[in-house]
Amino acid sequence: MVESAIQLYTLRNADVPFGELLERVADAGFDGVEFAYRVTDENPDAVRETLEEIGLAVAGAHVPIESFEEEFDDTVAFYETLGCDEIVVPWLDQEWFASREGLGSGIERLEALEDRLADRGITLHYHNHDHEYVALDEGNAEDNEEGIGDNEGGAGKEPHTGFHAFVERSEVDLELDLGFVLKAGDDPVELLRAVDGRCRLAHVKDVDIDSGELVPVGTGDLDLAGCADAFRDCGGEWLIYEWEGDDPLASLEDAAATMDELV
């Protein structure tokens, strides 16, 4: 069953106590939350108690990879206390996707963390932006695979990119950001179907293709219904709303209603 959540980065600047913020999310009608940043300033026991009281589930958390590489046990313990068993690395710099060597090293880095988290019962995901869609320099490699996103008609519409190669050559689960996929010139519906089974979390973000600007969900060019159908068909679990515009609290109920229609 697909459920709706909100990425709390959306509400990062809301000037209300964290507990009240969670209550507003629940009152708006979301099923769950995905944490980012601000939660690390809170008492995890108190946050979990609030979540249980108001009936919000934890869809996952965005955590910089460096937090695990520098303080693995403490970082894992914090999110375990929250009841979070889905961890998302939200960003790797473009350099990790621009060359064959960088891509290989980036995949090794993620898969090493994936193995350590799996030992604790936690699943790792990678969340894309559009900078991963850089042209991939394969050097002198002779095994430039065709597949997702190549010129012969994979999921993407651009030449083979670092992100498509990452999808092909790694086994890390994905949290596709559908708006950034579209912004990069790829087809979100086709990509969801191509990665069948690897994308249980997805960000619902919208973009105006002509301007290249991110816009409120439902006002841009993202095929919301098509994405929702593909996500459901491929075993997706959480569609996660995100909006980086002004005054997101004012549109919280409308956002929850939009997401409710998709799930």
Rank of each mutant, 00 (worst) to 15 (best):
I65T: 08
V89R: 04
A250I: 11
E108D: 14
L178A: 05
F166Q: 01
D221W: 04
P216K: 05
N144G: 11
H203S: 04
E71C: 09
D233K: 13
D221F: 08
D247S: 12
L239K: 01
E145P: 14
I240K: 05
R109V: 14
R232E: 13
G154K: 09
E142G: 13
I6V: 07
G156A: 10
I87W: 06
N144Y: 10
G29V: 04
C84R: 00
I209G: 06
N140W: 09
L252R: 04
G29S: 00
D150Y: 06
D177P: 02
G236L: 05
A26H: 03
V215Q: 08
A228T: 09
V167F: 05
G185A: 06
G19N: 08
D208N: 15
H62C: 08
I148V: 13
L249A: 13
G162H: 02
T258D: 01
E53R: 15
V2M: 12
M259N: 04
P44Y: 02
D208A: 12
D150S: 15
E142H: 14
R116H: 03
G154V: 12
L56T: 03
C84P: 03
T50P: 10
N43C: 11
A59Q: 02
E261Q: 09
E138V: 13
E146H: 15
E168M: 14
E69T: 08
A57I: 08
G179S: 08
I87S: 03
R200F: 05
E168F: 11
E66P: 07
E80F: 05
P216Q: 07
